[in-house]
C-alpha cells in the first residue's frame, strides 16, 4: 500500500492540497458531481424523428443486417430464412429467454446454453438498442451469457422495437432504473467484428462474428 500512499500524496502535493489522502469533504464533492450524471451535448441525428429508421441506417453503415417481424413467434422462421439465405447450418446456441419458441417447426436445432467454440451461430436478446449508433446493448447475467454474441461466426440478436432508445445516455438511465448498476459485462455491439491492421484495409471478421443480424420484433 506504499504505492497507493505515494501516488495519492504526490497528486495532492502537485495540486497544492495538504494531507496524504482526499478529505471526506473532497470525496463528498466528487460523489455529488457524479450523482448529477450530467449529460453532454449530443449530435442532432441522435434524436431523429424516426428512431427506427435512424437505427436501421446506422446498422447498415456498420454492417449489421436487420429484418422486422410482426411477432416474437415469427422469430424462428426469420432466423431460418436468414441462415438459409447465407447457406448457414440450421442450428443456434441461444439464451433461455427464447428457448420456448417453436424452433423445431422452423427446422432449427436450438441449443439452450452458452455458446462454445464449435457453435456456428449464437442467438441472443439485448437489454436495449441505441439508434444513434445502431448499437445492441447486452447486459451479462446467468441468463444472458456474452459468449453467444462473441464466439460463433454468426450472431443473431432479437431486438424489441420499444427498447430502441435514442442514445447511450438513455440506455444508461434505463439500466440504472431497471438493474441499478452495470453488471459484470456491459457489452455494446455495433456490427460484425473487423480489423484494418494490415495496410489499413478493412476486413470483416477479426476475432468476433463475421455476421450480425438484428431481428426487430414489436
Amino acid at each position: 500500500m506504499a504505492a497507493r500512499r505515494g501516488i495519492l500524496a504526490r497528486i495532492r502535493k502537485a495540486q497544492g492540497r495538504d494531507g496524504e489522502e482526499p478529505t471526506a469533504a473532497e470525496l463528498a464533492a466528487v460523489r455529488e458531481a457524479i450523482a448529477r450524471h450530467e449529460v453532454g451535448p449530443q449530435p442532432p441525428f441522435a434524436h431523429a424523428p424516426d428512431r427506427l429508421a435512424q437505427f436501421r441506417k446506422e446498422c447498415d453503415r456498420l454492417g449489421t443486417t436487420h429484418a422486422t417481424v410482426s411477432s416474437l413467434a415469427e422469430v424462428p422462421a426469420e432466423v431460418a430464412r436468414y441462415l438459409a439465405a447465407g447457406a448457414l447450418a440450421p442450428a443456434v446456441a441461444g439464451w433461455g429467454e427464447f428457448a420456448g419458441l417453436d424452433w423445431a417447426g422452423a427446422g432449427i436445432g436450438y441449443r439452450n446454453r452458452p455458446a462454445d467454440a464449435n457453435d456456428a451461430t449464437g442467438l441472443t436478446g439485448c437489454f436495449c438498442a441505441i439508434a444513434e449508433t445502431g448499437t445492441l446493448l447486452l447486459l451479462s447475467s446467468p441468463a444472458a451469457p456474452k459468449l453467444n454474441a462473441l464466439l460463433p461466426e454468426t450472431h443473431v440478436c432479437v431486438v424489441r422495437a420499444a427498447r430502441i432508445l435514442d442514445t447511450m445516455e438513455e440506455a444508461f438511465a434505463l439500466m440504472r432504473s431497471e438493474a441499478g448498476e452495470p453488471p459484470r459485462a456491459t457489452f455494446f455491439v455495433s456490427g460484425p467484428s473487423r480489423t484494418a491492421d494490415i495496410e489499413q484495409t478493412i476486413v470483416i471478421g477479426a476475432h468476433g462474428p463475421y455476421r450480425v443480424h438484428a431481428v426487430i420484433v414489436p
Binding site: V39, G134, F188, A196, G208
Partner: peptide, 29 residues
C-alpha cells in the same frame, strides 16, 4: 460517470479512424 463515457466515446472512434462507434465497447465491472 457513465455519461462522461458516452461523451468521450462519441469523440474517440471518430478521431481515431473516422468510425462513428467501434464494433465493440465493453464495460467490465
Amino acid at each position: 460517470t457513465l455519461e462522461d463515457f458516452a461523451t468521450l466515446i462519441r469523440l474517440l472512434p471518430r478521431s481515431a479512424i473516422g468510425q462513428t462507434v467501434t464494433n465493440y465497447l465493453t464495460l467490465t465491472t
